[in-house]
Amino acid sequence: TYTWNTKEEAKQAFKELLKEKRVPSNASWEQAMKMIINDPRYSALAKLSEKKQAFNAYKVQTE
């Protein structure tokens, strides 16, 4: 089980997950979700809006 003390740690864990699963920077949210949804870190960020925000930040960083 994973635990995160801060929102920032949770966001980092979520981005690490995207990186580890090699989600391409041109992937849509739907494509990315299919690649990461079974990992416990997918739940790091509770709100869908937070997940999408972190995903978009990840995409910008990896382009």
Rank of each mutant, 00 (worst) to 15 (best):
5 N>C: 15
20 E>S: 08
14 F>T: 00
2 Y>W: 11
7 K>R: 07
2 Y>S: 13
51 K>H: 02
35 M>H: 05
44 A>M: 04
14 F>Q: 00
33 M>I: 08
24 P>C: 06
23 V>E: 00
15 K>I: 15
19 K>A: 14
35 M>R: 05
25 S>P: 12
11 K>Y: 15
40 P>G: 06
46 A>T: 14
16 E>C: 12
39 D>M: 01
34 K>Y: 11
40 P>F: 13
43 S>A: 13
53 Q>M: 12
56 N>Y: 15
44 A>Q: 03
8 E>H: 07
2 Y>A: 14
51 K>P: 02
3 T>Q: 14
51 K>W: 05
35 M>I: 08
39 D>C: 03
15 K>V: 14
3 T>K: 10
7 K>F: 08
43 S>C: 14
8 E>V: 06
40 P>Q: 06
29 W>G: 00
2 Y>K: 15
34 K>T: 11
47 K>Q: 11
37 I>V: 10
42 Y>E: 02
54 A>F: 05
28 S>L: 06
50 E>Y: 05
23 V>Y: 01
60 V>S: 11
35 M>A: 06
15 K>D: 15
56 N>Q: 13
10 A>C: 08
38 N>G: 14
16 E>D: 14
37 I>G: 07
39 D>G: 00
6 T>L: 05
2 Y>F: 14
2 Y>D: 13
61 Q>C: 14
23 V>G: 01
53 Q>D: 12
36 I>M: 05
40 P>S: 05
46 A>L: 08
14 F>L: 02
60 V>C: 15
1 T>C: 15
37 I>E: 11
22 R>Q: 12
37 I>D: 08
8 E>M: 06
39 D>V: 00
28 S>E: 05
27 A>R: 03
32 A>M: 03
31 Q>M: 09
10 A>Y: 03
45 L>D: 01
54 A>D: 02
1 T>K: 15
15 K>P: 01
29 W>F: 10
52 K>D: 03
43 S>H: 14
59 K>D: 03
5 N>R: 07
12 Q>G: 08
55 F>M: 03
60 V>Q: 14
49 S>D: 12
46 A>R: 12
59 K>I: 13
52 K>M: 11
8 E>S: 08
23 V>A: 01
2 Y>I: 15
49 S>M: 06
46 A>Q: 14
48 L>Y: 06
45 L>H: 02
5 N>P: 10
49 S>Y: 07
6 T>M: 05
14 F>W: 03
